[in-house]
């Protein structure tokens, strides 16, 4: 066993040394002439405002030029939600097999309330602001501020998680795990559906410019971007809640 550990350590050290030496062949950091800074990126910086109508280049690339990647990314999040829920559910096999549990009762969060008066009052103040901020991040994303669907969804999810943590399962501001999973699917579907619409209008997948609206190209693109951002927000928010619910769910006594 000692021998194996020593061998593994040797492999790790050798790989580190190889990577260190190999770093010498990389173009110097901060070099404006490096291939990464000159080949593809120029168009994103120079054209994206007129081509996509987004002042934030990152949003332009994320939601438009490489919008298909982002669909994949959203799907990854959804997949994670599915995987987390299925394995924590199949662990508690005692659940009624084959029976349909009404959605309203399906998600039971942490049952005990561990909020104190300070926490309760603080939460009452904090939650609306966090929610407002989440919405602001979504709306302000394309307008030259950092942020967008993913961040907004995560902030909104944090608001719900705070409420769940403070008020327990009875929180008024709550979404149950199974419903969250369905919502996450719908959110990603909204994203994909924007692409399907462009297919139906005769363009390529996610080609926002094809929309038959009386708008300039940039406006159509920013409309498309807002459409998918809403989908991303919904998916990310719902998935984080679903995973949280799966992790925090108290084992049912069977």
């Amino acid at each position: 066993m000692k021998f194996v550990r020593a061998g593994a350590l040797l492999v790790v050290v050798v790989m580190t040394v190889v990577l260190f030496i190999g770093a010498g062949a990389l173009p110097a950091i901060y070099n404006p002439q490096s291939p990464a800074s000159t080949h593809v990126s120029d168009r994103y910086i120079e054209k994206s405002v007129e081509e996509t109508g987004s002042l934030n280049f990152v949003t332009a690339v994320l939601a438009d030029y490489r919008g298909y990647d982002t669909l994949g990314e959203t799907t990854v999040i959804f997949t994670a939600g599915l995987a987390a829920v299925v394995l924590l559910r199949s662990a508690q096999k005692a659940d009624s097999r084959g029976k349909k549990v009404p959605l309203a009762k399906a998600g039971k969060g942490m049952s005990e309330r561990f909020g104190t008066i300070v926490l309760n009052t603080a939460a009452r103040f904090v939650i609306p602001f966090v929610t407002l901020y989440g919405v602001y991040v979504l709306v302000g994303g394309g307008e030259g501020n950092p942020g967008g669907g993913f961040q907004s969804g995560a902030v909104l999810a944090i608001a719900i998680i705070i409420s769940r943590l403070v008020y327990g399962e009875g929180a008024a501001f709550n979404i149950s795990g199974d419903l969250a999973l369905i919502l996450a699917g719908i959110g990603t579907f909204i994203y994909a559906f924007v692409g399907v619409l462009t297919l139906l209008w005769g363009g390529n997948f996610l080609e926002y410019g094809i929309a038959p609206f009386l708008m300039s190209a940039a406006e159509k693109h920013s409309l498309g971007i807002s459409g998918i951002e809403i989908g991303v927000t919904l998916c990310v928010m719902a998935t984080i809640i679903a995973i949280f619910d799966a992790l925090a769910r108290k084992e049912e006594v069977s």
Binding site: A36, S41, F57, V58, A60, V61, D69
Partner: peptide, 8 residues
């Protein structure tokens, strides 16, 4: 501007 592609 910094290259936005790696950020994305």
């Amino acid at each position: 501007y910094i290259n936005p592609l790696p950020h994305t």
